[in-house]
């Protein structure tokens, strides 16, 4: 692990304006994320746990620079993502990529998957050796290079999530943001995909922000955990400490929901 963190999030806050209730009053404001802060080194995984409305997807969108924070900074390799010009940001994007939850919704059903996987490369201006890079990414996620010519409907749910991961790693990023990347999968497939993510981390030295509502899943892949509720950080620390001795009652509830044996 290097000294300088790969990703540093400082005091990140995001507020959304809600629909106006009355003409005369200012619209109500929802604070989706308040003062989130952490740092992440290469090869390390940070788990972000919370339920719907906890702000975990807002955090993902801010890290990915899909939207701007109201306060705070996102430093990726020591550069503030929200202070860059759009051109600089586009060039830097290949360094951080995202795996989305729904492999059905995130792949264009009318395009061969090779086209979809190459999309981040085209977006960052690369035009050479696309076929070779697609084949390489497919092999890395345990699929065949010949699969590039198939359509999304020809694959099972687990395979589609592998395709989504191939698309995220094709730019050879240093950081992966996985938002509920295994939530839609059956238990046996979920374990396969989690192992794949860990393999890729070991091989490529990826730092990963792993977002999930399932504390058991987070505990199995993450070094550290951040528990969010209503946008606030309830607790954070080494994964094992949080899972073995949760401080906050909310974390205990999440743990209870994740337990198998009665």
């Amino acid at each position: 692990m290097t000294d300088a963190p790969l990703l540093e999030v400082r005091n990140l806050t995001r507020r959304y304006k809600l629909p106006r209730q009355s003409l005369l009053r200012a619209p109500p404001v929802l604070t989706a994320l308040e003062g989130a802060a952490f740092s992440l080194c290469a090869g390390e995984t940070l788990g972000v746990v919370g339920e719907s409305g906890s702000g975990k997807s807002t955090l993902a969108r801010l890290i990915m620079a899909f939207e701007r924070p109201d306060e705070g900074e996102v430093l990726f390799q020591r550069r503030d993502l929200h202070g860059l010009s759009s051109g600089e940001l586009r060039r830097l994007r290949r360094g951080f990529q995202m795996v989305f939850q729904d492999p059905f919704g995130s792949l264009n059903p009318r395009r061969r998957i090779g086209w979809s996987i190459a999309e981040p490369l085209r977006a960052s201006g690369e035009t050479e050796h696309l076929g070779y890079r697609v084949a390489e990414a497919l092999t890395q996620v345990g699929l065949h290079s010949a699969d590039a010519g198939k359509y999304p409907h020809e694959f099972s749910g687990g395979q589609r999530q592998r395709i989504a991961i191939a698309r995220a790693i094709i730019t050879r990023p240093a950081l992966l943001v996985a938002d509920e990347a295994v939530s839609a999968l059956d238990v046996s497939i979920q374990a396969q995909i989690l192992n794949l993510l860990m393999d890729l981390q070991d091989d490529l030295g990826l730092g990963m922000v792993f977002i999930s509502h399932d504390l058991a899943v987070v505990g199995s892949v993450c070094d550290r955990v951040l528990v969010l509720q209503h946008g606030k950080t309830l607790e954070s620390g080494a994964a094992l400490d949080v899972l073995r001795a949760p401080k906050h009652p909310y974390t205990k509830t999440l743990l209870k929901a994740a337990g198998v044996r009665p």
């Binding site: 504390l215 899943v217 993450c222 743990l255």
Partner: peptide, 11 residues
């Protein structure tokens, strides 16, 4: 049951 992550085991 095995594939289900066990929250008590170190990563």
């Amino acid at each position: 049951l095995g594939a289900r992550p066990d929250p008590g085991v170190a990563v």
